[in-house]
Design a protein around this nucleic acid. Sequence first.
DNA 1: ATTGACAAGTGTACGCCGTACACCTACCTT
DNA 2: AAGGTAGGTGTACGGCGTACACTTGTCAAT
Lengths: 232, 232
Amino acid sequence: MAQQTETVRRTPLSRERVLSAAVVLADESGVESLSMRKLAQQLGVVPMALYKHVANKEELLDGMVDVIVGEIDTGASGDDWKSAVRQRVLAARQILLRHPWARHVIESRTNKSAVVLEYMDAMIGMFRAGGLSVDLTHHVMHAMGSRMWGFTQEVFDDSAGAAAEIPPAMLHAMAEKYPHVMEIAMRADHDDESVVGQGCDDQFEFEFALDLLLDGFERLHEQGWTSRGRST
Amino acid sequence: MAQQTETVRRTPLSRERVLSAAVVLADESGVESLSMRKLAQQLGVVPMALYKHVANKEELLDGMVDVIVGEIDTGASGDDWKSAVRQRVLAARQILLRHPWARHVIESRTNKSAVVLEYMDAMIGMFRAGGLSVDLTHHVMHAMGSRMWGFTQEVFDDSAGAAAEIPPAMLHAMAEKYPHVMEIAMRADHDDESVVGQGCDDQFEFEFALDLLLDGFERLHEQGWTSRGRST
DNA sequence: ATTGACAAGTGTACGCCGTACACCTACCTT
DNA sequence: AAGGTAGGTGTACGGCGTACACTTGTCAAT
């Protein structure tokens, strides 16, 4: 009678199954509420089972980043380096936008996996192929910062969108205390002759900054930049 | 005999005392190991006592950011807007460097305190005083991102400094897999004719990117920038 | 001098977390 | 048939944030 262990013997765990379940869970309810226990439950397994596939939670997060970075479209393009980089970064952005938690996780990771190193190596290669010197490329990569992953750290919170729900009295008080902030927030909010609509257009802001940087890189490159201001 | 409750009745807690003790603790052992319980112990008090002065841990972190931001030297300068902003940002950087944990905390905060809003308002004011339009200033602030606090998100980890401790065999393997990364890492590492010394010079990288951005802002401003590419 | 309100600090307890460690069990190799 | 091994289990521990009920010390009004 001994029934076949269970109806059909569920598909076994694997590192891949663990990681992608974790990504799904983070997409759904945020990375801050992702726990080994909830992840295990989702997979119909006891928490400790996960530890046969990932060393610990840190490594789980590393793996999740790899999954995301692996999704980035790295289709080659024969364009000039600027367009190539631009295209790659915007492709990364498309992916990152679908996994809002990834921003935070990427920033907090300290070890770089093979997948991440490959991505970075390829991007460095784009600048080098464009003729930028090793040194200039080095600085340029630093200047890119997390923008190479397609996100800005949104220090400048979208105070505009929220303005609608703030009582007028408080709005007035804020306008007195933070006149410049309000000026910008209000403009972004109801500037009817612009495209923005609600709040401000994150995509526009991102491309604005990206192009500013790329143009700056190009200018330095054309001027034959060499460690200005440093002794030879 | 009843001794006077305790030798001398310790100085009472206060929000300020709690916050600055938290800052000290984070400076010493990192923000990730800062807990309400350890903080309480440090203050010679039971954990729940803290909750009379901060609502919860989130608010504690907010308050810690305020302490740091409050330290930033905001001495006015009569210079042109570019130098003024540059000076302010580098002042912020000096403070942030002394509190490495603040980077992460500032980035993860979602609510902006009065102190933070004041800082941002002042910085916006600098651009406006320099004659930049509201729109341009808006985009410029986005482009600054967390650089306005004096830090870059160090996505590009200092692989150079670490290279010294990696066995040559692995170094060789890495050079084959990530040639461009290695090229940069090695150059930054033992480029004897540069100032850099060990690894790469973070301060230089920061100023490089900051100046690139500021120069870009200036150029756009001089060209009378108006929402390029957007319909009127 | 008595009262009583109120702010500050305490003690206990709950539910969550990551994970060490010993165990079982199914399967594969020989 | 024997035994090694990889994958899944169960129990348990110490740490976390914090709810809630409590004592205590202080001071103003009576």
